[in-house]
């Protein structure tokens, strides 16, 4: 398999949702569960009905809201304790 074959392929709508699904929800974790919720959207369940722009939009909005503390809802990344 050449490096070119590693290029990500698939339906565009699927790719970003899958990327987030893989990177944010799967893979080894150092300690305990890492739970990420952005703007009340459970990224584990990002569906095909949500387009890339919608996902980006929600994340942008979430990021903007975090600049207006206090807000307990977005984005939340529970890191291992003691770090």
């Amino acid at each position: 398999m050449s490096d070119d074959d590693l290029e990500l392929l698939g339906d565009d709508r699927l790719v970003l949702g899958d990327l987030l699904n893989h990177v944010l929800d799967k893979g080894i974790v150092i300690s305990g569960d890492v739970t990420i919720a952005v703007a009340d959207i459970d990224l584990i369940r990002v569906g095909l009905g949500i387009y890339i722009t919608a996902i980006q939009s929600e994340l942008d909005h979430a990021a903007a809201r975090t600049r207006t503390p206090p807000h307990a809802n977005v984005p939340v990344l529970h890191h291992p304790s003691g770090l």
Binding site: D5, L6, L8, L9, G10, D11, L14, V15, D18, H22, V23, K26, G27, I28, V29, I30, S31, G32, D33, L48, P80
Partner: peptide, 17 residues
């Protein structure tokens, strides 16, 4: 049916601490 990839094996390496 929609297929995406190849990905690194995130789903198969979900071992915790």
């Amino acid at each position: 049916v929609m297929v995406s990839g190849p990905w690194a094996p995130y789903t198969f390496c979900a071992a915790g601490s």
